[in-house]
Simulated assay, not measured.
Amino acid sequence: MSRHFDDLQLGSLELFCLAADSGSFTAAATEAGVTPAAVSRSVARLEERLGVRLFVRTTRRMRLSEAGQAYYQQCRQALGQLVEAERQVTGGQVAPSGRLRISVPTPYAHHRLLPLLPAFQQRYPQVQVDVHVSNRNVDFAEEHFDLAIRGREPADSRLVARRLEDAPLVVVATPAYLARRGTPQVPEDLAGHECIQFELASSGRRPRWSFRRDGRELELETDGSFTCLGDFLATATLVRHGAGLMQAYRFTVQEALDSGALVEVLAEYGGTSRPFVLIYPQARHMPLRLRVFIDYLFAEGARSHG
């Protein structure tokens, strides 16, 4: 059997994938320990060999071309298979390595994911983690994310969705606000209160507040003088400074509730929750770094919040 690739071409494939992952020749060069010129030459060799442009470059950004995107998906899978083959042959002794790109909404990032990352890095020091903290939906193919955490399952059947947890909801306010405006006794009393709003980036809508009464879920539209866009944790800051009431994930305000800085109201109408879902593309061969991260996330999540 004649050789189809030489060592230089295989190295060019790795540098091409690094450049696609990072969106930058400079960042790829830093990760690979070579010069940006070396990355540029490697990509140029591939483009000459294939007879297509792999990247579309402008003065402000660099992105994969349509042909480059298709080639990247195949190359990334093939390189992952090589790593997996080494892992199996050596009895699993190949250490997870490479870069993970994760997109996660602000409340889950600050209160769930980010606190877990230092211990993960100590366990797997050759894995680098890029965390994109945002509530907007991301395009896995276009933006090269390995996984995302979102508040709902995706409609795209090409994506795997695994539920991380159902996060309980709670309505809170400061003691000072309640002393000034009174404490709502039933959900309908919220019509006379300042209810801090959050606008979803993906849809531009404000979620209704959710309650449970007589075993059935009740959703109410609320209103107030303040609306936060983009960062859900901004609502918690407003609440702590007495701006009004807010329905939040309990895990984002638990410390303030424990200290008495915030007070839970309408507790007898609680019991509702919203999910957080781990999402990643389907693949026959999952990179080892992604597999160990997913396993770690579920194991630590189960240990820390049941």
Rank of each mutant, 00 (worst) to 15 (best):
A167F: 02
D223M: 05
Y249H: 09
R250E: 09
D258S: 12
L288S: 11
P184T: 02
P281H: 04
G270K: 12
T252M: 10
E199R: 15
A155I: 01
V239P: 00
R213T: 11
G204A: 06
V186D: 00
H193W: 02
V170K: 00
A248T: 05
F276N: 01
A161G: 07
G244L: 06
L220E: 00
E165S: 08
D223S: 14
Q282H: 12
R180E: 11
R212A: 09
C228G: 01
H285A: 11
T237F: 07
D231M: 13
V160E: 13
V277F: 11
T272V: 13
L159P: 04
T227N: 04
C228M: 13
D214R: 15
E255Q: 12
S210N: 04
G244F: 03
T183R: 15
S203F: 04
T252E: 07
A256L: 12
A283Y: 00
R162F: 03
G230I: 12
P207I: 06
P275N: 13
L159E: 03
Y177A: 05
S273C: 12
M286A: 13
P287Y: 09
E221Y: 03
A161K: 11
A243V: 03
A236E: 10
F211W: 02
F232V: 07
G215I: 10
L218G: 06
A248M: 08
L233W: 01
F211E: 00
T252S: 14
G271N: 08
E268N: 13
L262Q: 04
L190S: 02
A236H: 11
P281L: 08
D223T: 09
D156T: 04
R216V: 14
G271D: 05
R205D: 09
R250V: 04
E199K: 14
P287L: 07
R291M: 10
L220A: 02
P187H: 02
C195D: 01
A173E: 06
V172Y: 02
A176Q: 15
G192D: 10
E221F: 04
P175N: 12
R213W: 08
L278A: 14
G192P: 01
L200H: 03
F251N: 05
L200D: 03
R180S: 10
R206H: 10
L190V: 08
M286F: 05
A176C: 05
S203I: 04
S157E: 10
V160R: 15
G182I: 08
Y269I: 06
S273W: 05
F226R: 09
D223P: 00
G244K: 07
A261M: 06
W209G: 02
T227L: 10
E194S: 14
T235W: 02
V186K: 13
L266P: 01
P184M: 05
L229Y: 11
Q282K: 15
L245S: 05
